[in-house]
Design a protein around this nucleic acid. Structure first.
Length: 395
RNA sequence: GGGCAGUUACCCAAGUGGCCAACGGGGACUGACUGUAAAUCAGUUGGCGACACGCCUUCGGAGGUUCGAAUCCUUCACUGCCCA
């Protein structure tokens, strides 16, 4: 139950007890538990926040349970109302297929591909009739939706709440029923969908309600707000080891416990050792964060790449050296510095380049350059800011 | 269907005829400092440029009024509220 967050101790205890019972039942029936988590194929770019439930799925997988990675290609026509952007255009079937594919690909950095079942919820949702929907919907009241935090806020603010958004929960509940799910994993923003909607729908359809594993929300690099791409505080999965390592290093110290619990492979005992070390001063916060960054990076890119990323980080930010691998660009001898900066994409525009030069952010082999109009005196490593390098050579 | 309010740069949000490339906040970027790309402080944050506050593009879309508009008018689109 590490990293879970129910916001209500009674609910947590209830789920814990139910999970134990269900495990015993399954054992008697000689079957694994059916676990699933749904993913919205709207956004193909996954970040660490998305991997929180995947880590939990992986744990179940390692215990021999049956894990389904459900791609919500039908529900994505609506968009989860817990998302702020409700007015995004509908995706074409091609886009959904493509996103779903890349989604699964990224997910398999964590999940075991051989043990993971991939399903699409259009398989059953597209077959429901209007009459079916009415019957399902009759289990819910408008008040239940209006007391939900995200609808409540929008209601109070006078923002739009579309009727079809309420279907989202019902559909998700039907997913759980259609798959005869034992356990459903999701973030705290899924509490209503999993606990209220899914359990209600399953009970109504004559099935045993699924057990909710509700996980905490991973804060972004600011350490406070939920990680999201639109807020610009995300750490993407499809990047490289060095970038991921660095980005994890940039989280505030206060976010370390949450990261440790939600996105590492560490056991509660492992985490306790680190936290005790921090408490009694035997472990430096910076070193603790390095461990964390290394662990997170290793879980995606493997141990050796993570080690290399750590070395590069130390060299670059603690010793201020040039990184090992620097992209190389051939330039002509008479190009002005500004032209070179733009050509190497070290700056966004010439105006941007001028600013960088004025702010003493442009260096050639460690020496600050002050004139953007001049060509370079010699070949070398051109640096903009702390972390953008290009090795320039004359043609 | 009717009435009212709104649509501003990456996001939030001022601005109601010239001093607006547009206050402020967030974010991002640069520098100093440091235990890191943290915190703090300072600066920058449309593009071009012979670097002169000179030119070009931007304030939902399209027209119009005016020497001159983000600011006024017309119209279209979208959103919210109230009434039906």
């Amino acid at each position: 139950m590490q990293g879970t967050e129910y916001g209500d101790e009674a609910l947590k205890q209830a789920m814990k007890t139910e999970l134990k019972q269900r495990l015993l039942e399954a054992e008697k029936e000689h079957r694994p538990l059916r676990i699933y988590c749904g993913f919205d194929p709207r956004k193909a770019d996954l970040h660490l926040g998305h991997t929180v439930p995947m880590n939990k799925l992986r744990q179940f997988q390692d215990c021999g349970h049956e894990v389904t990675f459900l791609i919500g290609n039908f529900t994505s026509l609506i968009g989860d109302p817990s998302d702020k952007d409700i007015l995004r255009p509908q995706l074409t079937p091609e886009e959904v297929a493509e996103n779903g594919r890349t989604y699964a690909e990224q997910a398999f950095r964590i999940l075991d591909p051989k043990k993971t079942i991939i399903r699409y919820n259009a398989e059953w949702l597209s077959k429901l009739s209007f009459a079916d929907l009415i019957k399902l919907a009759s289990n819910f009241t408008v008040q239940q939706f209006l007391t939900r935090e995200n609808f409540k806020l929008r209601w109070e603010k006078g923002d739009a709440i579309y009727l079809h958004e309420t279907f989202y929960s019902i559909m998700q509940g039907y997913d759980a029923y259609a798959m005869r799910s034992d356990v459903q994993v999701g973030g705290t923003d899924q509490l209503f969908n999993i606990v209220t909607a899914a359990r209600k729908v399953m009970t109504y359809m004559g099935e045993k309600p699924n057990i909710a594993i509700i996980l905490g929300i991973l804060p972004g690099t600011d350490g406070v707000v939920k990680m999201s791409k639109s807020l610009g505080n995300h750490i993407p999965i499809n990047t490289n080891a060095e970038d991921m390592f660095g980005k994890v290093m940039s989280i505030p110290d206060s976010a370390m416990p949450t990261y440790s619990r939600l996105i590492t492979r560490w056991t509660p005992a492992d985490i306790k050792v680190i936290e005790d070390g921090l408490k009694d001063g035997s472990l430096h916060p910076r070193d603790a964060k390095m461990k964390l960054a290394r662990e997170v990076t290793a879980s995606f890119y493997g141990e050796s790449e993570a080690d290399q990323a750590q070395d590069a980080f130390i060299r670059l930010f603690q010793k201020h050296d040039v990184p090992d691998e620097v992209p190389e660009t051939i330039i002509s001898r008479d190009q002005s510095l500004l032209d070179i900066l733009v050509a190497c994409q070290l700056v966004g525009s010439r105006s941007d380049g001028r600013r960088m030069v004025e702010q003493k952010g442009v260096k050639l082999d460690g020496v600050v350059l002050t004139d953007g109009k001049e060509p370079l005196q010699h070949e070398g490593v051109l640096q903009v800011g702390k972390r953008h390098f290009v090795r320039v050579k004359f043609a």
